[in-house]
Lab assay of single mutants.
Amino acid sequence: MKVIFLKDVKGKGKKGEIKNVPDGYARNFLFKKGLAIEATPANLKELE
């Protein structure tokens, strides 16, 4: 799953980066803790 990092996550990504991460990791950790959001076309446009 492609995500946009909202905060730095040690060993995974830095704020503003767009990366592919495992689906479970994104849903169960990154999204729940507010560390990242899904890289949807709308979210990507908002980032620019």
Rank of each mutant, 00 (worst) to 15 (best):
M1R: 08
M1W: 05
M1V: 08
M1N: 03
M1F: 08
M1H: 06
M1A: 05
M1L: 15
M1D: 03
M1P: 03
M1E: 02
M1I: 15
K2Q: 13
K2W: 15
K2L: 15
K2R: 15
K2G: 06
K2H: 09
K2I: 14
K2P: 09
K2E: 11
K2N: 12
K2S: 12
V3R: 00
V3E: 00
V3H: 00
V3W: 01
V3A: 01
V3T: 01
V3P: 00
V3S: 00
V3D: 00
V3Y: 01
I4Q: 04
I4L: 11
I4G: 00
I4W: 03
I4A: 03
I4N: 00
I4Y: 09
I4K: 04
I4S: 01
F5W: 03
F5N: 00
F5E: 00
F5Y: 08
F5V: 00
F5L: 07
F5A: 00
F5I: 01
F5G: 01
L6R: 03
L6E: 01
L6S: 02
L6T: 08
L6A: 02
L6I: 11
L6H: 02
L6Q: 03
L6F: 03
K7M: 12
K7W: 09
K7I: 12
K7E: 11
K7L: 10
K7S: 09
K7H: 13
K7Q: 13
K7D: 06
D8G: 05
D8P: 05
D8Y: 08
D8K: 06
V9K: 02
V9D: 01
V9L: 06
V9E: 01
V9N: 01
V9A: 03
V9I: 09
V9S: 02
V9W: 06
K10M: 11
K10I: 12
K10E: 12
K10Y: 14
K10W: 15
K10G: 08
K10F: 14
K10N: 10
K10L: 13
K10V: 12
K10A: 13
K10Q: 12
G11I: 02
G11P: 04
G11M: 05
G11V: 01
G11D: 08
G11H: 08
G11E: 04
K12R: 14
K12I: 15
K12P: 01
K12Q: 15
K12N: 08
K12H: 15
K12F: 15
K12A: 14
K12D: 06
K12L: 15
G13E: 02
G13I: 08
G13K: 01
G13N: 04
G13R: 01
G13D: 02
G13P: 00
G13W: 13
G13T: 03
G13V: 05
G13S: 04
K14M: 13
K14F: 12
K14L: 12
K14D: 05
K14Y: 12
K14G: 06
K14W: 09
K15N: 04
K15A: 13
K15G: 03
K15M: 09
K15L: 08
K15D: 03
K15I: 09
K15V: 09
G16I: 01
G16R: 03
G16D: 05
G16S: 04
G16E: 02
G16F: 09
G16V: 00
G16H: 08
E17R: 02
E17Y: 03
E17P: 00
E17T: 07
E17M: 06
E17H: 03
E17A: 05
E17G: 02
E17D: 13
E17V: 04
I18K: 03
I18L: 06
I18D: 01
I18Y: 03
I18W: 03
I18S: 03
I18F: 03
I18N: 02
I18P: 01
I18G: 01
K19G: 08
K19H: 12
K19P: 01
K19I: 11
K19Y: 07
K19A: 10
K19R: 12
N20E: 14
N20K: 12
N20I: 15
N20S: 13
N20D: 14
N20F: 15
N20R: 13
V21M: 12
V21K: 01
V21R: 01
V21F: 08
V21L: 05
V21P: 00
V21D: 01
V21I: 09
V21T: 03
P22I: 07
P22N: 11
P22R: 10
P22Y: 07
P22K: 10
P22W: 07
P22L: 08
P22M: 08
P22F: 07
P22G: 08
P22Q: 10
P22T: 09
D23P: 14
D23F: 15
D23T: 15
D23W: 13
D23Q: 14
D23I: 15
D23K: 15
D23N: 12
D23Y: 15
D23H: 14
D23M: 15
G24R: 14
G24H: 14
G24Q: 13
G24P: 10
G24E: 14
G24D: 15
G24K: 12
G24I: 13
G24N: 14
G24L: 13
Y25S: 04
Y25E: 06
Y25D: 05
Y25P: 05
Y25L: 09
Y25R: 05
A26Y: 12
A26E: 07
A26V: 08
A26R: 02
A26N: 02
A26Q: 06
A26P: 01
A26M: 07
A26H: 04
A26F: 13
R27M: 11
R27E: 09
R27V: 12
R27W: 12
R27P: 02
R27F: 11
R27A: 08
R27T: 10
R27N: 09
R27Y: 12
R27D: 04
R27K: 13
N28H: 13
N28F: 12
N28E: 14
N28S: 09
F29L: 06
F29P: 01
F29Q: 06
F29E: 09
F29M: 08
L30V: 01
L30F: 02
L30D: 00
L30M: 03
L30H: 00
L30I: 01
L30N: 00
L30G: 00
L30S: 00
L30K: 00
F31H: 01
F31K: 03
F31D: 01
F31Q: 02
F31R: 01
F31E: 02
F31I: 14
F31M: 08
F31S: 02
K32V: 15
K32I: 12
K32S: 08
K32T: 09
K32Y: 07
K32L: 13
K32E: 10
K32D: 06
K33D: 05
K33S: 09
K33M: 15
K33G: 08
K33T: 10
K33F: 15
K33P: 02
G34P: 00
G34D: 05
G34Y: 07
G34W: 06
G34Q: 09
G34H: 07
G34M: 09
L35V: 04
L35A: 04
L35H: 04
L35E: 03
L35P: 00
L35Y: 13
L35M: 09
A36E: 00
A36V: 05
A36S: 02
A36Y: 00
A36T: 02
A36N: 00
I37W: 06
I37V: 13
I37G: 02
I37H: 04
I37Y: 05
I37A: 08
E38G: 04
E38Y: 07
E38H: 07
E38A: 11
E38P: 14
E38L: 13
E38K: 09
E38Q: 11
E38V: 07
A39S: 04
A39I: 05
A39Y: 13
A39L: 08
A39G: 06
A39K: 02
A39W: 11
A39Q: 01
A39F: 10
A39M: 07
T40R: 05
T40Y: 05
T40W: 04
T40E: 05
T40K: 06
T40H: 06
T40M: 05
T40F: 05
T40Q: 04
P41F: 10
P41Y: 12
P41L: 12
P41W: 13
P41Q: 12
P41M: 11
P41D: 14
P41E: 14
P41I: 12
P41A: 14
P41V: 13
P41G: 09
A42Q: 14
A42M: 10
A42H: 12
A42G: 13
A42D: 15
A42T: 10
A42P: 08
A42N: 12
A42S: 11
N43I: 11
N43D: 07
N43T: 10
N43Q: 08
N43S: 10
N43G: 07
N43M: 11
N43H: 09
L44T: 07
L44K: 05
L44S: 05
L44R: 06
L44E: 06
L44P: 04
L44N: 07
L44F: 07
L44W: 07
L44G: 05
L44D: 05
L44H: 06
K45Q: 12
K45H: 09
K45I: 11
K45S: 10
K45A: 14
K45Y: 09
K45F: 12
K45T: 09
K45G: 10
K45V: 11
K45L: 14
K45W: 10
E46N: 12
E46P: 07
E46G: 13
E46T: 13
E46R: 08
E46F: 13
E46I: 11
E46V: 11
E46K: 10
E46D: 14
E46L: 13
E46M: 10
E46S: 09
L47D: 06
L47E: 07
L47K: 08
L47R: 06
L47G: 07
L47Y: 14
L47M: 10
L47V: 11
L47A: 09
E48F: 12
E48L: 14
E48I: 14
E48P: 11
E48N: 13
E48H: 13
E48W: 09
E48G: 13
